[in-house]
Structure formats: C-alpha cells, structure tokens
Amino acid sequence: MEATTVWFVAIAFLWTGYFFLEGFDFGVGALLPVLGRDDTERRVLLNAIGPVWDGNEVWFIVAGAGTFAAFPEWYATLFSGFYLPLLAILLALIVRGVAFEYRGKRDEPHWRRRWDRAIFWGSVVPAFVWGVIFANLSRGVALDARHEYVGTLTDLLNPYALLGGLTTLTLFVLHGAVFLALKTAGDVRARAVRIARIAVVAAIAVGGTFLLITQLQHGKPVTWATVAVAAAGLVGAAVAVARGRDGWAFIGTGAAIVFAVVTLFVALFPDVMPSTITAANSLTTTNAASSPYTLKIMTISAVVFTPLVVLYQGWTYWVFRRRIDASHIPQPTRRTEPEPTKDPEPAR
C-alpha cells in the first residue's frame, strides 16, 4: 500500500475517532438545558464527561496536524476555503472549554446560567457545522486550476450540506443521550432514556435520508455495505433503547457514527477535495501529499505513539466507568459568620 493511501486511512481513522468520542460530548452539551432541571442535575451531566472531554478533543488536534503534515495542499485549501465555518467551530470550542472551567468558580445562579448557555451553543454549533463541512467535501466544491476555493459562503450552505449538518447534530444528540443513559442513574438517566427514544427516530429519518442521497449521488458499490451497517446501528440502537439495554444502544449509535464517516471517506477516495468545476482541478491523495520521506518519518512516529495514546485514553475511560447521580454531587456549604464574643464582665 502506498504511503499516501496509508495516511489517507490514518486521517480517516482520526476523524472517525473524533466524531465517535466528541460526538457524545457535543450531545451532552446540547442536552444540558433539557435534562438538567437544576444546578445539581446539570453538574451530573457535566461530571459525566468532565474526565474525558478534553482528551476527546485531542483527536481533532491530531487530525488537523496530521492533515497539515501529510497533505499540506488539502490542509491549505480546506482551511482557507472553509475559513468562516472553521472559525465558527474554533470559537465555539474555545467558549465551550472556558465554560467548563469557569462555570464552578462562583455560586451565583446567573453566573452559572450564562456558562450553561455557552456550553449549549459551544456544543450545538460544532455538531452542526462539522456536518456541513464534511457534506461539502463529499459533494465537491469549486476549486480552480491552482486548487484554490473560488466559491462563496452561500455555496457551502447548499441543501445537501445543511442536511449533513442536521445529520451530525441529530446523531450526536442521540449519542449523547445514550451515553448519559449508560453513565448516569436516577432521574437524569430516566429522562435521558426518554430523550433517546425521540432522538433515535429523528436520527433514523434525517441520517437515513442523508446517507441514501450520499450513496446514490457520490457512493461506490462498496459503500452500500458501510451504509447498511450504519443503518443497522441506528435500528439496533432504537431496539436497545426500547429494551433498556444502554450498553448495546451506545454500541449501536457508535457504529452508526463510525460507518457514516467511513462511508464519506471511502466515497471520497482517491480524492481528498473534489472540484465541481472540472475533475482536473480536484485535490487527490497524490497531488496533495507531502514528500515520500516526510510520510515515512510520520508513519514511524504514528506506529510508535498511536497505540500508547489509545491505551492511555482507554485506561481513562476504565477508571471513570462508574455511573453517577445527584448523590455524588457535593452540595455547596454556606459560610457562616462567627458569633460576636461578649466582652467579659468587669471585675468587681
């Protein structure tokens, strides 16, 4: 297998891992105002992802860095042509990360409500915009002979791309609801299960439509299999949610996300960014790649360090595997002023 193909698979693996892991983070953030009826319950939701959310975002950083190093032409065209959507994602992720850290700095309700809104929008915006971006990659964009994007922002907001955004949003909300059903207990879990039963219907309708259109317009014969597995994952998640099998439901939503992303990348190959003007302007794994020596050094590094990172993150999930509920959330202690001391009676 050529080095360029190896790194295309590696980039696809990184993006798939990112959407699988960060997907339920986004879903939990989007469900924060729905499932958390008071501050204690909202803290349950945030504590469910608290130990892992920043580690999940590392997959995005590594995917971007790997794209830059292995396919610099792809990186340059993607980050310049999709500048505004990617800027919206970056700002949302920054605000979301700050909100996680600053929410608990003060006990005032209005302070925490503001950061809760930041977490909500910092989760919803990336969940939607990532779908818009990857749908446009699958569909193709206007690239000229210099591999520069010559379209406009409104061109990126076409109906197919917007459907892709709704697909990732509904999938991530479902993924987050199922994760909370698996990770929490008590009233929060009961409401998460009810939300999951509604979200899975929306995910099947929206996601199924998007995948079918993608397969008919941009797919290959082999991607019928990946589309079928993604659809089976959603149907299996619906059955598991109805039967209260939280673990199987999470496997189902995870499989749906993984194979939906795999479908997009397999349909894309060997292009990395198709041109809608003419196929000659498209970026491919060949004309967008770094030098063979660079790819060789990167491959050695990836073989050494990737298993270590995966093992470490797996250990983190194992350590924090237990369910949590409101009883695990310490209540704030009220500060009491010391009673004033009485002056001693004067000696007689």
Results as ranks from 00 to 15, higher is better:
residue 329 I to V: 14
residue 276 T to W: 01
residue 282 S to N: 02
residue 95 V to R: 01
residue 299 T to K: 08
residue 196 A to D: 06
residue 11 I to M: 03
residue 157 L to Y: 08
residue 278 T to C: 00
residue 137 L to V: 12
residue 156 L to Q: 12
residue 54 D to R: 11
residue 18 Y to P: 01
residue 293 Y to V: 10
residue 241 V to W: 08
residue 51 P to H: 13
residue 203 A to H: 00
residue 64 G to Q: 10
residue 81 G to W: 06
residue 123 S to N: 02
residue 277 I to H: 00
residue 15 W to L: 15
residue 121 W to P: 00
residue 161 A to Y: 09
residue 42 R to A: 07
residue 267 A to T: 11
residue 315 W to I: 04
residue 270 P to M: 12
residue 19 F to L: 15
residue 276 T to G: 01
residue 326 A to D: 12
residue 259 F to Q: 10
residue 138 S to I: 03
residue 89 I to T: 04
residue 256 A to H: 02
residue 194 R to N: 11
residue 83 Y to E: 06
residue 246 D to G: 12
residue 5 T to F: 14
residue 241 V to A: 11
residue 325 D to Q: 10
residue 283 L to N: 05
residue 290 S to P: 00
residue 293 Y to M: 09
residue 234 L to I: 13
residue 159 P to H: 08
residue 283 L to F: 03
residue 320 F to E: 06
residue 268 L to Y: 00
residue 324 I to Q: 01
residue 248 W to A: 15
residue 287 N to F: 07
residue 330 P to A: 14
residue 197 R to A: 14
residue 88 A to Q: 02
residue 345 E to C: 02
residue 42 R to N: 06
residue 314 G to Y: 03
residue 194 R to W: 05
residue 162 L to Q: 11
residue 57 E to H: 15
residue 332 P to V: 09
residue 38 D to H: 08
residue 339 E to I: 03
residue 138 S to R: 02
residue 192 A to D: 04
residue 135 A to F: 02
residue 121 W to G: 00
residue 189 R to N: 05
residue 166 L to Y: 10
residue 304 V to E: 00
residue 47 N to D: 11
residue 261 V to L: 15
residue 346 P to I: 14
residue 274 P to N: 05
residue 169 L to Y: 06
residue 241 V to L: 13
residue 264 L to D: 05
residue 213 I to T: 08
residue 166 L to N: 06
residue 14 L to D: 03
residue 167 T to Y: 10
residue 190 A to C: 10
residue 282 S to R: 09
residue 293 Y to Q: 13
residue 24 F to D: 01
residue 278 T to A: 14
residue 164 G to I: 08
residue 54 D to P: 01
residue 115 W to D: 05
residue 271 D to S: 11
residue 176 G to C: 10
residue 136 N to S: 10
residue 32 L to I: 04
residue 339 E to P: 02
residue 253 T to M: 12
residue 333 T to I: 12
residue 258 V to W: 05
residue 268 L to T: 02
